[in-house]
Computed example of a mutant assay.
Amino acid sequence: MSPLLIVLGGLPATGKTTVATDLARRTGFAFLRVDTIEQAILRTGPLGPPLGPVGYVVAREVAADVLGTGVSVIAECVNPLSVTRDAWRATGLGAGARVLEVEIVCSDPAEHRRRAETRDPGVPGLVPPTWAEITAREYEPWNRDRLVVDTAGRPVGEAVSAIAAAIGGPQF
């Protein structure tokens, strides 16, 4: 069977990293986090924020290499624009992989704000966006089907199980 590219997108502080990390642990799939890649690039020298598409381009190239070995990949990023979503899809299909696009949302604004204001991003040097920056961020509506997973009031395991069900895997 061909490998699978799962692209988890959504606004900051919706639970993407938490869900992606648990999903990777349970499936054994490779896990790529664009925030980690971007911070590593920033630590190397003269490039400074904003990086533009650099982190996404690097992540997609690494994903294509991994998928080419037959290993499935979970890519986690905000993925806010149609152009970024199309690029991820093209990466997976170009590598001969199946693609599942997942939008992680937090439908409870108070919970989403609490997460934004209290979370540790878990990446050295990464300064998470403020609540005001999150709510003002450009985030285009999706123009195609995707799996939507709402993390508001939901245990991480349930979110991961919803994704596992969509890929035909076991319930965790």
Rank of each mutant, 00 (worst) to 15 (best):
3 P>T: 08
121 P>S: 04
97 A>P: 11
126 L>P: 13
133 E>D: 13
96 G>V: 03
45 G>S: 11
80 P>H: 00
118 T>I: 01
122 G>N: 07
31 F>Q: 13
136 A>D: 15
164 A>G: 13
89 R>H: 13
40 A>W: 10
127 V>W: 03
73 V>E: 09
121 P>R: 00
150 D>V: 03
3 P>S: 14
10 G>M: 01
124 P>G: 09
115 R>D: 02
110 A>Y: 11
87 A>P: 00
120 D>K: 07
110 A>C: 07
81 L>Y: 12
62 V>S: 09
50 P>N: 06
27 T>L: 12
27 T>E: 07
107 S>I: 00
134 I>T: 03
131 W>G: 05
60 R>W: 09
60 R>E: 14
113 R>D: 00
47 L>S: 04
131 W>C: 01
60 R>D: 10
45 G>Q: 13
5 L>F: 08
129 P>E: 02
13 A>T: 05
147 L>D: 06
68 G>R: 09
21 T>E: 15
169 G>M: 13
154 R>G: 05
25 R>W: 08
94 G>I: 10
96 G>H: 08
20 A>V: 06
33 R>V: 12
168 G>W: 12
166 A>H: 11
48 G>M: 10
82 S>V: 12
153 G>H: 06
128 P>F: 01
39 Q>L: 09
162 A>N: 02
101 E>F: 10
12 P>C: 03
44 T>L: 15
133 E>H: 07
13 A>R: 02
110 A>N: 08
115 R>H: 04
67 L>T: 03
164 A>S: 13
113 R>F: 00
97 A>D: 11
160 V>M: 10
146 R>Y: 10
99 V>F: 10
144 R>Y: 06
112 H>F: 03
35 D>C: 05
16 K>W: 12
9 G>F: 01
60 R>G: 14
76 E>K: 04
5 L>T: 06
1 M>V: 10
152 A>L: 02
92 G>V: 01
27 T>M: 04
148 V>I: 15
71 V>N: 08
157 G>A: 11
108 D>M: 05
8 L>S: 00
